[in-house]
């Protein structure tokens, strides 16, 4: 392997520090014994303890978790269906428009997504609260699932499905017994991605929420405006932990899938 030059070492260090130093500081200060968020006063885990006694924070976390699981699950179903439509029905009328519309939310500023959803909810006179947050999170995470699943479907051998149907399987059962198990890793990583996106979201949730539904990012943001308490550091560290675990699982699944596919391909070539 090539040795890193001094320039590479410096740029890597700077780049990673830029990315991770704030988070490292955050986690470090969550173990701070003192009340101040900026002055070190020795090690302690007491802020973690007080997080679990703060009902408001726990309520917000519970809301966030419910929103995340619900919206990620629905978004996964819808996103997978969109990916199937895009990957399968080759050249239907308006395909380009459809795919552009599926992917547009990826690059759409969140403020615009949030505002337009708010306008929609107001227009149809929907009471804003828990369910409107779920709906808006489904909307903006669905496209991420579609992208992940579609990239898996691109390398899917359709004759496997044909073989199942040829053996007497109806198209409906074929999807559940053949297609879904094969693309399942991609579907799961899509779900993980949707879940973490929902967990992190502040902007869209702020636009679409109503009284009584406060997500954790919203709670943190409003608390911080009144002054940063060390408790917040602890909550944020916990969130970093959850998101990291989800992302790591998703990437391991994707990697595993790739390795397996490569191995299968190698075996196929060796068998020739």
């Amino acid at each position: 392997m090539k040795r890193l030059s001094a320039f590479n070492v410096v740029s890597l260090t700077l780049g990673f520090s830029f990315l991770y130093l704030p988070i490292v500081l955050l986690i470090l200060y969550s173990f701070n014994a003192g009340r101040s968020v900026a002055v070190w006063g020795g090690w302690s885990t007491k802020w973690y303890g007080s997080v679990f006694e703060n009902d408001q924070l726990l309520d917000a976390a519970w809301v966030t978790l419910q929103v995340g699981v619900l919206s990620a699950s629905v978004a996964t179903v819808l996103g997978t269906l969109a990916a199937l439509a895009l990957a399968r029905y080759g050249r239907f009328r308006g395909r380009t428009l459809f795919s552009a519309m599926v992917y547009a939310p990826l690059v759409m500023p969140e403020v615009i997504t949030g505002l337009s959803l708010l306008l929609l909810f107001v227009a149809v006179n929907l009471d804003r609260g828990f369910w409107t947050i779920v709906l808006s999170h489904i909307t903006f995470t669905m496209c991420f699932v579609a992208v992940v699943v579609q990239s898996r479907l691109a390398s899917f051998d359709r004759s496997v499905e044909e073989a199942a149907m040829d053996l007497g399987c109806t198209p409906f059962v074929t999807f559940f017994r053949i297609t879904l198990p094969i693309i399942l890793p991609a579907v799961i990583s899509g779900w993980m991605l949707a879940f973490t996106l929902s967990l992190d979201d502040l902007v869209i949730a702020s636009f679409t929420t109503g009284p009584g539904a406060t997500t954790l990012p919203m709670k943190i943001y409003s608390d911080v405006r009144l002054g940063v308490k060390p408790e917040i550091n602890a909550v944020c560290s916990l969130m970093v932990g959850v998101v990291t675990i989800a992302v790591v699982i998703a990437s391991i699944m994707t990697k595993r899938q790739e390795v397996e596919r490569e191995r299968a391909e190698r075996a196929a070539l060796a068998g020739r």
């Binding site: 051998d157 496997v160 044909e162 073989a163 040829d166 198209p171 198990p181 094969i182 299968a264």
Partner: peptide
Amino acid sequence: IPPHKRPVNMMFQSYALFPH
């Protein structure tokens, strides 16, 4: 008559075995 109701079976060029 759809494939799953025909009295024929096919062996595919790619074999199309179910990988899972």
